[in-house]
Design a protein around this nucleic acid. Structure first.
Lengths: 214, 214
DNA sequence: TGTACATCAGTGAACGCGCGTTCACTGATGTAC
DNA sequence: TGTACATCAGTGAACGCGCGTTCACTGATGTAC
């Protein structure tokens, strides 16, 4: 946390970041519609007009918050991958099953983010704002987005022979869509009525079906 | 179309229906956020206050439009199933493949609705309003919702031995989620950048993976 | 090291807008006798 | 068949609200000399 308030300062010093932060908080609490420019400024303790020194419009703020939400999803998935590596020397015969295990962990992390942070999730995948180009997954920042994580696991599976090579291209889209569908249907669709045990069972079945479909 | 304007009448005669209609039009044009009570009334040529004789609130209107959108989706799927039955006597050995064919048609219809009517689709599956209980799929109206259509096809597949019986329960949720995920990712997610050929290819691969995963 | 000055990042007040909702009302409808 | 009357389904005006955005402004910052 750098220089939020340089002591007795008039200027904020990091207002853009702070606004994205409070906007993210708003999205977390109330979803995409709750990301209101005036309220975001209010929470930072700043006039709404000042936001226009950092964002061209309300939509611009929304887009920034959307990107932040995507980052948070990526963080969650990366963390899950990191902690979920019990056997570090899987032996070549177990390579495929280890990769499958990681794929499952990735899907589970994705879904747990959706259920823990429905507001952020809805913003990240809702009609407001737009997704950046997937290929330009800023490698300079060193961190790979959710998309690259998935690609890597699928590469591992292909390398281990668990996926026929001719089926590999474009597979990330298919797998992503499958996991994503569960999340949406559980959050805002007909599966919202399931209690948490039923939901967990459905998730488990769906992940089975996905892996089977590889 | 019954009695929209009984000649020189003061009363509208079918205002509730008309409002749901114009609300649906609004959703079609601009998605969930565009379903504005005042505008819906304006389009029917009626004061916004009059809407409150038929809906308790704005949210009530939205819910009604949401249900309409679901109906339209069901219509589309049913129509697709009806026209897509070339061989009416499939022979017992081809029963499984015929059912698979119908499943594919169902998925394609679902996706074509999503792409043709993104506004309605977003309302149907968005955070606004809520889904009715699936089991209470009003059998008195004679028409089965999207959910029942899917169930029937899966039953056919199970009967034809294409699905191991122990995997049958809850399968509709899984399949639904898989198809749904494609739609959402293509509409509002990272797959929105695909051109229509790439999209079609992704869809095709995804449907393959789904069927393989049965 | 000190000073002049351009630039930057805030303030505070105001704008117009369209929304959901309420209210007292009135003309039309349909039912009881 | 006709009339009285309760109910229904509209009207039109108004309300308060919070929003996004603009404006002229001013205090703080940092750079050139």
């Amino acid at each position: 946390m750098r220089a939020r308030k340089p002591a007795g300062s008039y200027h904020h010093g990091d207002l853009r970041n702070a606004l994205v932060g409070s906007g993210t908080e708003l999205a977390r609490e109330g979803g995409p519609d709750a990301v209101v420019l005036r309220e975001a400024a209010r929470r930072v303790g700043v006039t709404s007009a000042s936001a226009y020194h950092h964002f061209a419009s309300h939509g611009d703020l929304i887009q920034a918050v959307k990107l932040r939400a995507m980052e948070l999803l990526g963080d969650r998935m990366r963390a899950s991958m990191a902690e979920d590596q019990p056997a570090q020397a899987p032996g070549e015969s177990g390579a495929a099953s280890a990769a499958r295990h990681r794929l499952r962990a990735l899907g589970a992390a994705y879904l747990s983010f959706a259920f823990d942070e429905p507001g952020l999730f809805r913003l990240a995948f809702g009609p407001r704002g737009s997704w950046p180009a997937l290929q330009a997954a800023d490698p300079e920042h060193g961190d790979s987005g959710p998309f690259l994580l998935l690609s890597e696991v699928l590469d591992d599976l292909a390398a281990a022979g668990a996926i026929p090579p001719e089926r590999r291209p474009g597979l990330e889209y298919v797998v992503w869509a499958e996991v994503h569908g569960i999340a949406v249907l559980c959050l805002d669709g007909p599966l919202a009525q399931l209690d948490s045990a039923q939901r967990q069972q459905t998730i488990s079945r769906a992940l089975d079906a996905i892996i089977r479909g590889l």
